[in-house]
Design a protein around this nucleic acid. Structure first.
Lengths: 214, 214
DNA sequence: CTCGAATGTGGACATCGTACACAAGGGGTG
DNA sequence: CACCCCTTGTGTACGATGTCCACATTCGAG
């Protein structure tokens, strides 16, 4: 076993073989259900069929484990964003395509926040840094972090004349602020429990505001 | 004593007299320094000079205490926002005044986030609901919650023709999203540690975007 | 004055993070 | 192929936390 994800049967080998990843995987599951505070060191080791202290061979402390889980969650965010872009119908012209890809960045971000609130909260739980955010561990299949995806989409807007070049600097912070703020409102603010379609509309409104105000 | 806020000397009376508020006060101090997860029941009771279990006469559990502290922190946010508005120079004309008061809402909010990040995080820590948010416990000296302050400011914009009436519905969520998102970026996102003046500029940019895009 | 409801105390327990010493065993060197 | 050592997992232990239960103290209504 060791490779199979189940955590029930006790390991047959003394060595686990892939404990570090098993712990991150277990942590992800805990985070999915209960957010960052639910990723408990002892629970993760239990799930991996290992004694609590074994974790310390791979992580300095609970915080380090949580950070690794957070990075993995961030990668999931990136994945959802890329998927949203990939699902886009072929664009009529380059400009329309750039605009659609930009909006998909926000839409994917918001979709993830609603579908996986626990992971979302974990991904952005006082993340050491989400810009450089160890680009490899926090990246999606395309190799880009959520932030980088946003930057690329903004560059696309500029290239197609949809965003004046002098407004480009710092634009990611404006866009990110608005979308992330809405995400928070949706998952544990006053907009929590909004019907998915209404939430989607709210998301489009915010993205409209960004396009207008950026 | 009981009335004095110090927590050093042991109470002389068997009854504390105002334990509930003493615990909230202690919780606020803990939250100020370490955010929501730092508001620890035992620490608060210790500070109040009382045995841990005494807290259960006033709060159902740690969560209830944290919620009360959160509400108190929210009141502090409202206070800062009101102060920001009060400090405004007299306006030239009503419209300019309405606009300045609207911007002050955002500026005050962002100021508080930077000056008291621990309290800020605590105020918005999965708050049962921040809209109705028990208007009395979360309100500032003016009797309004942060959300209500924002709504009032938006109404002011409409009254002065600065915001089309058909754009008013839901506008608080657009504005709140953007400002709150920036606040998060500033206190534990990639904009953390930004020089206060730069942070202020970023805030003005976001508010500009809101005014343009709302 | 008396007695009950409100408030604080004491002791106990499960769980958590983590430190320290020890065991197992896989891989490089001879 | 044998040996030794470094990595990885185990066992035991400690302090801290949230919370439960039974008991003590005191205030205030009658």
């Amino acid at each position: 076993m060791a490779s199979t994800g189940n955590g029930k049967s006790k390991r047959d080998t003394y060595r686990h073989g892939d404990l570090r990843n098993a712990l991150i995987e277990a942590g992800l599951e805990l985070a999915r259900q209960g957010g960052p505070e639910a990723v408990v060191l002892r629970a993760a080791t239990r799930q991996a069929g290992v004694v609590p202290n074994a974790a310390y061979r791979h992580f300095a402390d609970r915080g380090a484990l949580l950070h690794a889980v957070s990075q993995a969650a961030m990668a999931h965010v990136a994945h959802t964003m890329e998927a949203e872009q990939a699902a886009l119908p072929p664009a009529e012209d380059p400009a329309a395509g750039a605009r659609a890809r930009f909006r998909a960045v926000g839409t994917g971000y918001l979709r993830f926040a609603q579908e996986e609130p626990g992971l979302f909260r974990t991904a952005f739980h006082v993340p050491g840094d989400m810009t450089h955010a160890a680009a490899d561990t926090a990246a999606g299949p395309g190799g880009k972090t959520p932030f980088e995806l946003l930057g690329t989409a903004l560059d696309g807007l500029v290239e197609n004349g949809l965003l004046p070049e002098d407004r480009r600097p710092g634009a990611e912070f404006l866009a990110w602020s608005a979308v992330h703020g809405l995400a928070v409102l949706l998952i544990d603010g006053p907009l929590r429990g909004l019907h998915p379609t209404q939430a989607h509309d709210a998301g489009q409104h915010v993205i409209d505001m960004i396009e207008r105000g950026i």
